[in-house]
Amino acid sequence: MASRKPVNRPSVRHPSHNHPLRVFKAREEDEVVCSGCELELTGQAFKCIKSDCDYFLHKSCFELPRETSHKSHPDHSLTLLHSPPYGESYTCDACGEYGSGFTYNCSECQYDVHVGCAFIPETLEREDHEHPLTLLYNTPCKDREDSAMFTCDVCEEDMSENLWVYYCKDCDYGTHVHSCAVYEDHEPKKSGGEEEEEEEGSSSAVSRMKSLMKAQDELAAVQLECRMKRDANNAILGLYEEPKRRYYW
């Protein structure tokens, strides 16, 4: 009796990588980094089918549009590049940090934006500030005659005038667009139960957001895997179908 031929796990292709990718569920202890946005990867994603190839992608990075029109660069559209346009790295014109993964690029202006920066929200709220913060595509000090520098109100570092900033005009309050705006808490510590209550509320809000994003990615990845399995099964069944007869008159 002939042995059954093993069935290959469904895979997909992405133009950023030479090998097929398969659905993958990353755990925090794996310490995996997305090859597209270079951020930590958890939950449902994609990985290279080659065991010796450490290539991973968020589902959101897998589905990024090839071209986008962005308010920060209205004169030209931005094209998704899967590798740095100038060698091994580039500097993001949004946050000022280096990048070596995907970028949205304007080749005419040599303008580059991390894919993680390109789709950040236009407004956000901080628990330590009474007004919503609005995303600006340069600091309020840009083109000032006195050459004043804008200072982040969270980390108290001076910012280049061309960097993006989350800003409250009413209070002249602004932050960097990433760690200072969302993740880090530089507030002076309060005493006793007040501090614990505030930290608990902040952490629960972040946890709810992470859980929601994780659930959405997992659902989409399961749907994609089911679709790939169905397509693979249909292809296999097609090999065993009886050939259609042709009649000649």
Rank of each mutant, 00 (worst) to 15 (best):
H129N: 05
A94T: 01
E125R: 09
A118S: 11
V115G: 02
F46Y: 07
T79E: 02
E63V: 15
S89Q: 14
F102N: 07
L64P: 11
E97N: 09
C117K: 13
D128H: 14
H58D: 04
G116D: 14
K59C: 11
L124D: 00
F46M: 08
Q110H: 07
S72E: 08
C152N: 03
D75Q: 15
E130R: 15
P121M: 10
S69W: 04
K142R: 07
I49D: 06
E130F: 13
V115E: 08
H76E: 12
G99M: 14
D54L: 09
E97R: 01
L80Y: 04
D153A: 01
H82W: 02
E67M: 14
H70G: 00
T103W: 06
P132L: 07
C117L: 14
P121R: 13
P140D: 01
Y111W: 07
F62N: 09
H73Q: 08
P85M: 04
Y55W: 00
N138E: 12
L80N: 07
L78I: 06
G99C: 06
C117V: 14
C48F: 06
S83F: 09
L78C: 07
F46N: 05
H76F: 14
H114G: 02
S72W: 13
P121N: 05
E97K: 10
I120Y: 06
C48K: 02
A148H: 09
G101V: 11
D112E: 07
H129T: 03
L81T: 00
S60I: 08
F46D: 08
G101Q: 05
D75F: 09
C141M: 10
D128L: 08
E122H: 06
L135M: 07
Y55C: 02
Y104S: 05
T68G: 04
S69L: 12
E88S: 00
I49C: 09
K59P: 12
L135I: 10
P84W: 01
E63R: 13
G96T: 00
D54I: 04
D52C: 03
C109G: 11
C95F: 11
Y137E: 10
S100Y: 06
H58Y: 04
D153R: 07
F119Y: 12
K142T: 05
P84A: 02
K142C: 08
S77G: 09
C92D: 12
C141G: 15
H76Q: 15
R144M: 07
F150S: 04
T91D: 02
F46K: 07
C117N: 14
T103Y: 10
Y98G: 10
D54F: 09
D93V: 03
R126A: 02
L78A: 03
T91R: 03
L57G: 11
Y137R: 04
F56C: 06
F56Y: 08
E145P: 10
R144K: 09
C152D: 01
F150Q: 03
P85Q: 02
H82S: 06
H73I: 00
T79L: 05
K47V: 12
A94L: 00
S69F: 03
D75H: 15
L81S: 03
A118T: 09
D75A: 15
D146L: 02
C106P: 05
N138R: 10
C95E: 14
I49N: 03
R66D: 12
N138V: 06
H114L: 08
P65T: 07
L136V: 02
T123L: 04
D54M: 08
S60P: 01
C141F: 15
H73E: 03
C152A: 03
Y98P: 10
I120S: 07
D143A: 08
K142N: 00
S83E: 08
